[in-house]
Write a protein that binds this DNA or RNA. Structure first.
Lengths: 169, 169
DNA sequence: CGCTTCTTTCAGAAATGTGTGAAGTTAAGG
DNA sequence: CCTTAACTTCACACATTTCTGAAAGAAGCG
């Protein structure tokens, strides 16, 4: 695990600090996007780790938070399919892994999200009726979300294609 | 302002309550999407109003909050271009209006948002280098966001087309 | 030019959210 | 089957956010 630390004892510390800076910046952006703080930090740390996976203890130490905080964060992240939990066989340790290289898929797989929105809009249209300005305005929104739902599918297909191409060529 | 209230004194109240229910539900979803509470409520109220515009006093009364709260909410909404402010000539009253029928454009005009993200990812790639798993993983994310930025433009164009078509035919 | 009406700003109270420590639960290993 | 390591749950303290009331700031109108 140890690298050579004869000449430069601070190498590891500097590296760790640099990683931490990136993790915190990335996490801040996830927070801005609506994710709560601790899940954001855990997720950023996992993404920045060499194996894309860390144990609870490693996360706890790196982020300087209690195991309890890690536990809560991981529970959330697993729920929204951003990380998976692995048991290391022959150990009580658990290992949390970022979901493949396509975690950002989850960002767009907000199907449930879109559905809820559509439901609300439909109710609004029903309530106000298409013969009112409100009703029409809300109906426009509904149609936009229906359109969006359709489009996101094909967008992700194009991404898959784009990505395959760039791997091959 | 008063409607006939001879037969059914509760008509207006029921209507108001129904509107409120929709407003609150819609607002809750905006909150879920990351907007803060009061701006969400104000925005939902505006969208559900007949003219798509209300005065500060009207908002204050309908949402049962202080003028101060309305002021703060509107300031935010104007900043992110979701509402515009109009002065009623010959009155000190201000009228707040939802930005056209295409407010949802704003949802996707998150260019600045995407840019920030890209910047962070680029820094991560630089820091770790493409010869590390982390670096490659983060680079994948960067490319996804670049792809997304490109795609969102054409998506909105298709939406404009779709919409024009449905208006005409 | 002062009066009045509406809006904004600001300090602080109330509500909400977030992380910790301690106790509880599960499962490996002797 | 008991011990012990690891993770989880829960009550509470601390921090942050959010709304209010009061006072100050603009802008029409006499």
């Amino acid at each position: 695990m140890d690298e050579q630390r004869t000449d430069n004892r601070t190498d590891g510390d500097d590296e760790a600090e640099a990683v931490s800076r990136f993790v915190e910046r990335f996490a801040a952006q996830l927070v801005q996007a609506g994710m709560t703080r601790m899940p954001s930090r855990v997720f950023a740390a996992l993404l920045s780790s060499e194996l894309g996976a860390l144990t609870s203890a490693e996360l706890s130490e790196q982020l300087k938070v209690s195991p309890a905080a890690v536990s809560g964060a991981v529970r959330y992240l697993a729920q929204v399919n951003l990380v998976s939990r692995e048991r290391e066989p022959g150990s009580r340790r658990e290992r949390y892994r970022v979901q493949g290289d396509q975690w950002y898929n989850a960002l767009l797989e907000r199907d449930a999200f879109l559905r809820n929105w559509q439901t609300t809009m439909r109710e609004g249209v029903e309530q106000f009726g298409l013969d009112t300005p409100q009703g029409r305005r809300i109906n426009d929104t509904l149609e936009f979300f229906l359109f969006l739902e359709k489009e996101l599918g094909s967008l992700m297909q194009r991404w898959a294609a784009h990505r395959a191409e760039h791997l091959g060529g």
